[in-house]
Design a protein around this nucleic acid. Structure first.
Length: 414
RNA sequence: GUGGGUGUAGCUCAGCUGGUAGAGCGCUGGAUUGUGGUUCCAGUGGCCGUGGGUUCGAAUCCCACCACCCACCCCA
């Protein structure tokens, strides 16, 4: 047997209906914020991610699907979309277009990690980027947009965490100070933290080991080190978020794993997701364009929703759409008539399934299994009378109706 | 990459003090003529994850491998 490769999965009906509903809800919210869709290739030159995401990140060093093309060039299945969007922005000189470029995307991403709950090797993201402004006002709107989408998609009680990770001016000083402090307390921390204290001090702040928390709480905060540009930027974002009555929590320990993030970073977490409890992550990336070789600066901010995770939290809340009408066909002569009736009802916007010619009992059974709201019987009696047996499947009530009546009857909510 | 758990019918699982397999659900058909859901009856369906070993005999015991799940790491 050939089956789906590790970490990938088939999405089948009726589950796909939830995906469609979430995506439709997101598109609608994007529209109201004047965001427009961008579709970039799933394949990119490996260099794009190495330079964009960061040579030393886990994503680039051990999680990318990279392979050699037949001409010898190195290609990679995109592990995230921001680098691609920025590449397209630069390549198509979108900086020449009027105003801030507000773009959204949705689609599959690929990372070769060990699969677990809420984590797949092919997973789906819904994301947005606003490129062309360094203003904190854009940050606030971006976060508001993100929260609106989650709400519209049906996510209940999201927790929004916000922080600043500084920039190239102030972050190095903070990391140095952090290292210094960690050197003192490192032996008292968990094994992982002792290692992280050396390799990636910021990650210590992420530690979840309960015993470590008091010590980690004593460590210096990035906010003591924010420079003359980062500090007011963050203050402004914070003010705007509070003005908008968003349920923000300052998380001084929030760090992000991609190199391009600077200043504002944010995340939305949700319980009942298992260990991978982050539904959305994002932040500002003002240096990204230059890292990709752009001559013109292109400050931006964006976020990405883990669609698989979002759907884990909302599936079950949403009911699949029912079949409006099942047409039971009795006898060869009824086939053509049934087809015409079905076409008429479909043109009125209702879903219709037409049975194969056969026994009525079989047809009724199938109508019931498909969850049809109504069944229309088309047989010799109906052909002769010009009226059709129309049955409400929930109540069991049945009556004869004229063909013009059918679509109107379907309006009834039962 | 590391650790733990689980692999028996399409699905959820039982059987595991060794004697070549069961239930519920599903699916198909029947309870006579053009009426579903409830009920009853029958049928369908499994190389018991794979390969070795112990044994007269293995789903059951031992070993290896594989797959899936969960967790670490990291992230969405």
């Amino acid at each position: 047997m050939i089956h789906a490769v590790k970490g990938t999965r088939d999405l089948l009906p009726p589950g796909t209906a939830v995906w469609n509903q979430v995506e439709a809800a997101a598109r609608e919210v994007f529209r109201t914020y004047n965001y427009h869709e961008i579709r970039t290739p799933i394949l990119e030159e490996t260099q794009l991610f190495a330079r964009g995401v960061g040579e030393e990140t886990d994503i680039v060093t051990k999680e990318m699907y990279t392979f050699e093309d037949r001409d010898g060039s190195s290609l990679t299945l995109r592990p995230e979309a921001t680098a691609s969007v920025m590449r397209a922005y630069i390549e198509h000189r979108m900086d020449q277009r009027p105003g801030v470029q507000k773009l959204y995307y949705m689609g599959p991403m690929f990372r070769r990690e060990r699969p677990q709950k809420g984590r797949y090797r092919q997973f789906f993201q819904i994301g947005a980027e606003a490129i062309g402004s360094a203003s904190p006002d854009v940050d606030a709107e971006m976060i508001e947009l993100a929260m609106d989408i989650l709400k519209s998609a049906g996510l209940e009680s999201p927790v929004l965490l916000v922080n600043s990770v500084g920039d190239a001016n102030c972050r190095p000083a903070y990391i140095a100070a952090l290292r210094e402090e960690l050197r003192k307390i490192s032996p008292k921390l968990c094994e992982d933290c002792q290692r992280r204290a050396e390799t990636n001090p910021l990650r210590v702040l992420d530690c979840k080991v309960p015993e470590d928390q008091p010590l980690i709480g004593q460590l210096p905060s990035i906010h003591e080190f924010l420079c003359g540009e980062c500090k007011p930027h963050f203050q402004r974002v914070w003010e705007l978020l509070n003005d908008r009555k968003l349920p923000v929590k300052l998380d001084q320990r929030l760090v992000r794993g991609l190199d391009y993030y600077m200043r504002t970073t944010f995340e939305v977490v949700h319980g009942a997701l298992g260990a991978q409890n982050s539904v959305l992550g994002g932040g500002r990336y003002d240096g990204l364009a230059e890292a990709l070789g752009s001559k013109v600066p292109a400050p931006g901010i964006g976020f990405s929703i883990g669609e698989d995770r979002l759907i884990m939290t909302v599936e079950g809340n949403l009911k699949p759409q029912p079949l409006d009408l099942f047409v039971a066909v009795l006898g060869e002569r009824a086939v053509e008539q049934a087809g015409q009736l079905a076409r008429e009802v479909r043109q009125s916007g209702y879903s219709v399934e037409v049975s194969a010619d056969g026994k009525l009992k079989r047809a009724m059974e199938l109508a019931n299994k498909l969850g049809a709201r109504y069944t229309l019987i088309v047989g010799d009696n109906e052909l002769a009378a010009g009226r059709y047996a129309f049955k409400n499947m929930a109540s069991g009530q049945q009556e004869d109706v004229a063909r013009e009546e059918i679509a109107r009857r379907l309006q009834t909510v039962n």
